[in-house]
């Protein structure tokens, strides 16, 4: 039995840092398509985070991995970020579709100001991703929201 306080302090620190990471890492949403077009894994990602009291950010990203591979078309057909206060949409920023050709990664970040809200205030990133390689097409809809 280990009774030294330093030992348990270290264990507690490791757990606390782990919990901190869980809190910070789980904010985004992803979905993936392994063996997309038989050459790569396609990944769609959306994320939302608070920067400071003034603004919050919304992100959209399409990329390939394992292995990273340039594909015919990569990006999204549409993307919107919005904030809601008690279910009411305060701002709804609709962005045009955007793609790159012959690339492995495409992303964008939108910046919105934070509005005062007396209840549940949330930021959203939503839209449909776009992956094409040869005859293979993958267009997943993905949405994430976080308290901001």
């Amino acid at each position: 039995m280990i009774r030294r306080p330093k030992f348990w302090l270290g264990v507690a620190l490791a757990i606390a840092l782990g919990v901190y990471q869980v809190h910070n890492v789980l904010a985004y949403a992803t979905t993936s398509y392994p063996n997309f077009a038989g050459v790569t894994t396609a990944v769609a990602l959306k994320d939302v985070w608070v920067v400071n009291s003034t603004s919050w950010d919304a992100k959209v990203q399409s990329y390939t991995t394992n292995p990273v591979r340039n594909i015919g078309t990569i990006g999204w057909t549409w993307w919107t970020f919005r904030d809601t206060c008690n279910g009411v949409i305060i701002d709804n920023w609709v962005q045009p579709g955007s793609v790159r050709y012959g690339a492995s990664n495409h992303w964008d970040v939108g910046v919105d100001d934070r509005d005062p809200c007396g209840g549940s205030y949330r930021g959203w990133s939503l839209g449909t991703h776009d992956f094409k390689e040869g005859d293979s097409i993958w267009r997943p809809y993905l949405s994430t929201d976080e308290g901001i």
Binding site: V11, A14, G18, Y28, S32, T41, L45, Q61, T65
Partner: peptide, 29 residues
């Protein structure tokens, strides 16, 4: 404790990446 700290951070990060369905390498860009 130092070993636990390192293993905990690496392990939890890896587990989270799997839970969220993302690949183990950090997203580029």
């Amino acid at each position: 404790p130092i070993l636990l700290l390192v293993v905990g951070l690496v392990g939890i990060s890896g587990a989270l990446v799997q839970v969220s369905g993302q690949q183990s390498e950090p997203p580029v860009g």
